[in-house]
Protein backbone atom coordinates (compact mmCIF):
# COMPACT_ATOMS: atom_id res chain seq x y z
CA UNK A 1 0.00 0.00 0.00
CA UNK A 2 1.02 3.59 -0.50
CA UNK A 3 3.00 5.58 2.05
CA UNK A 4 0.26 8.20 2.49
CA UNK A 5 -2.01 5.49 3.86
CA UNK A 6 0.48 4.01 6.30
CA UNK A 7 1.79 7.21 7.79
CA UNK A 8 -1.51 8.53 9.24
CA UNK A 9 -2.33 5.00 10.34
CA UNK A 10 0.91 4.79 12.35
CA UNK A 11 0.11 8.21 13.79
CA UNK A 12 -3.33 7.03 14.92
CA UNK A 13 -1.87 3.84 16.40
CA UNK A 14 0.75 5.93 18.17
CA UNK A 15 -1.92 8.19 19.67
CA UNK A 16 -3.91 5.19 20.86
CA UNK A 17 -0.81 3.71 22.48
CA UNK A 18 0.01 7.05 24.11
CA UNK A 19 -3.56 7.36 25.38
CA UNK A 20 -3.41 3.88 26.91
CA UNK A 21 -0.07 4.60 28.58
CA UNK A 22 -1.26 7.93 30.05
CA UNK A 23 -4.52 6.34 31.15
CA UNK A 24 -2.59 3.56 32.87
CA UNK A 25 -0.77 6.08 35.04
CA UNK A 26 -3.61 8.57 35.64
CA UNK A 27 -6.48 6.24 36.54
CA UNK A 28 -6.11 4.91 40.10
CA UNK A 29 -5.69 1.15 40.49
CA UNK A 30 -8.85 0.81 42.58
CA UNK A 31 -11.08 2.40 39.95
CA UNK A 32 -13.74 0.00 38.76
CA UNK A 33 -17.18 -1.43 39.38
CA UNK A 34 -17.61 -1.90 43.14
CA UNK A 35 -21.29 -1.41 43.91
CA UNK A 36 -24.53 -2.70 42.47
CA UNK A 37 -23.55 -2.44 38.80
CA UNK A 38 -21.65 -0.29 36.34
CA UNK A 39 -24.32 2.43 36.28
CA UNK A 40 -24.32 3.05 40.03
CA UNK A 41 -21.09 1.48 41.26
CA UNK A 42 -18.35 2.68 38.91
CA UNK A 43 -15.94 4.57 41.14
CA UNK A 44 -12.67 4.76 43.03
CA UNK A 45 -12.96 2.26 45.89
CA UNK A 46 -10.66 4.23 48.19
CA UNK A 47 -13.06 7.17 48.29
CA UNK A 48 -15.35 5.30 50.69
CA UNK A 49 -12.57 5.19 53.31
CA UNK A 50 -11.84 8.86 52.67
CA UNK A 51 -15.42 9.77 53.54
CA UNK A 52 -15.40 7.52 56.59
CA UNK A 53 -12.26 9.26 57.85
CA UNK A 54 -13.92 12.71 58.05
CA UNK A 55 -13.47 13.97 61.64
CA UNK A 56 -16.52 14.00 63.90
CA UNK A 57 -17.42 17.39 65.38
CA UNK A 58 -20.64 16.76 67.33
CA UNK A 59 -20.00 14.22 70.09
CA UNK A 60 -23.35 14.15 71.88
CA UNK A 61 -24.39 14.65 75.48
CA UNK A 62 -22.88 11.34 76.65
CA UNK A 63 -19.50 12.79 75.82
CA UNK A 64 -20.32 16.04 77.71
CA UNK A 65 -21.46 13.98 80.68
CA UNK A 66 -17.96 12.61 81.20
CA UNK A 67 -16.70 15.96 82.55
CA UNK A 68 -19.85 18.04 83.18
CA UNK A 69 -22.30 15.58 84.79
CA UNK A 70 -23.92 18.25 87.00
CA UNK A 71 -24.92 20.40 84.00
CA UNK A 72 -26.10 17.42 81.97
CA UNK A 73 -28.16 16.18 84.94
CA UNK A 74 -29.67 19.63 85.54
CA UNK A 75 -30.78 19.90 81.95
CA UNK A 76 -31.97 16.30 81.83
CA UNK A 77 -34.52 16.96 84.56
CA UNK A 78 -35.91 20.04 82.80
CA UNK A 79 -38.25 20.59 79.90
CA UNK A 80 -35.18 21.22 77.76
CA UNK A 81 -34.03 17.63 78.29
CA UNK A 82 -34.35 16.61 74.63
CA UNK A 83 -32.10 19.46 73.49
CA UNK A 84 -28.52 18.38 72.92
CA UNK A 85 -25.85 20.38 74.79
CA UNK A 86 -24.07 21.14 71.55
CA UNK A 87 -27.13 22.84 70.03
CA UNK A 88 -26.43 25.87 72.26
CA UNK A 89 -22.81 25.31 73.30
CA UNK A 90 -21.59 24.58 69.79
CA UNK A 91 -19.91 21.47 68.42
CA UNK A 92 -17.32 20.05 70.84
CA UNK A 93 -14.77 19.36 68.06
CA UNK A 94 -11.64 18.37 70.03
CA UNK A 95 -12.68 20.11 73.24
CA UNK A 96 -11.01 20.47 75.76
CA UNK A 97 -7.85 20.51 73.62
CA UNK A 98 -9.18 22.70 70.85
CA UNK A 99 -11.23 24.73 71.42
CA UNK A 100 -10.35 25.02 75.09
CA UNK A 101 -13.63 26.79 75.82
CA UNK A 102 -16.83 26.38 73.87
CA UNK A 103 -18.59 29.61 72.89
CA UNK A 104 -22.13 29.54 74.35
CA UNK A 105 -24.81 31.00 72.11
CA UNK A 106 -26.94 33.08 74.50
CA UNK A 107 -28.56 35.17 71.78
CA UNK A 108 -32.30 35.81 71.71
CA UNK A 109 -32.32 34.36 68.21
CA UNK A 110 -31.33 30.96 69.57
CA UNK A 111 -34.31 30.81 71.95
CA UNK A 112 -36.64 32.23 69.29
CA UNK A 113 -35.93 29.21 67.05
CA UNK A 114 -38.58 27.44 69.11
CA UNK A 115 -40.10 30.16 71.30
CA UNK A 116 -40.79 32.80 68.69
CA UNK A 117 -44.59 32.88 68.35
CA UNK A 118 -45.76 31.91 64.89
CA UNK A 119 -49.18 31.06 63.58
CA UNK A 120 -48.60 27.43 62.62
CA UNK A 121 -51.86 25.50 62.93
CA UNK A 122 -51.25 21.81 62.37
CA UNK A 123 -47.67 21.93 63.57
CA UNK A 124 -46.13 21.04 66.93
CA UNK A 125 -44.69 24.53 66.97
CA UNK A 126 -48.01 25.92 68.17
CA UNK A 127 -47.77 23.72 71.29
CA UNK A 128 -44.53 25.37 72.41
CA UNK A 129 -44.92 28.54 74.49
CA UNK A 130 -43.96 31.41 72.24
CA UNK A 131 -43.34 35.12 72.68
CA UNK A 132 -43.61 38.08 70.35
CA UNK A 133 -39.94 39.11 70.21
CA UNK A 134 -40.74 42.76 69.50
CA UNK A 135 -42.81 43.28 72.67
CA UNK A 136 -41.34 40.75 75.16
CA UNK A 137 -38.37 42.62 76.71
CA UNK A 138 -36.80 43.49 73.37
CA UNK A 139 -33.02 43.77 73.38
CA UNK A 140 -32.57 41.86 76.64
CA UNK A 141 -30.90 38.46 76.47
CA UNK A 142 -33.37 35.73 77.49
CA UNK A 143 -30.76 34.29 79.86
CA UNK A 144 -30.96 37.44 82.02
CA UNK A 145 -34.22 36.10 83.46
CA UNK A 146 -34.54 32.49 82.30
CA UNK A 147 -32.18 29.66 83.14
CA UNK A 148 -31.82 27.52 80.01
CA UNK A 149 -31.03 24.45 82.13
CA UNK A 150 -34.13 25.12 84.28
CA UNK A 151 -36.54 26.90 81.99
CA UNK A 152 -39.64 26.60 84.21
CA UNK A 153 -40.81 29.73 85.99
CA UNK A 154 -39.45 28.47 89.33
CA UNK A 155 -35.99 28.67 87.81
CA UNK A 156 -36.42 32.33 86.95
CA UNK A 157 -33.58 34.57 88.01
Amino acid sequence: MKNHVWRPLYLVLGFIALFLVIRHFLVPKDFGVHGKNFTYGFHRAGNIQEWQAVPIKYHGRESCNECHPENVAANASSKHAPIQCENCHGPAMNHPDSPEKLPIDTSRELCLRCHGALSTPGSQRSRIKGIAPDSHNPGTPCTDCHNPHKPDLEGIR
Binding site: Y58, Q124, R125
Partner: peptide
Protein backbone atom coordinates in the same frame (compact mmCIF):
# COMPACT_ATOMS: atom_id res chain seq x y z
CA UNK B 1 -45.79 16.31 62.39
CA UNK B 2 -43.01 16.68 64.96
CA UNK B 3 -40.91 19.32 63.23
CA UNK B 4 -41.19 22.81 64.76
CA UNK B 5 -38.79 24.51 62.40
CA UNK B 6 -36.04 25.25 64.94
CA UNK B 7 -33.35 24.64 62.33
CA UNK B 8 -30.91 22.99 64.75
CA UNK B 9 -30.54 20.17 62.20
CA UNK B 10 -29.35 22.58 59.51
CA UNK B 11 -26.95 24.30 61.90
CA UNK B 12 -25.49 20.97 63.03
CA UNK B 13 -25.24 19.68 59.45
CA UNK B 14 -23.39 22.71 58.17
CA UNK B 15 -20.89 22.69 61.05
CA UNK B 16 -20.40 18.92 61.04
Amino acid sequence: EKCVGCGFCVKACKLE
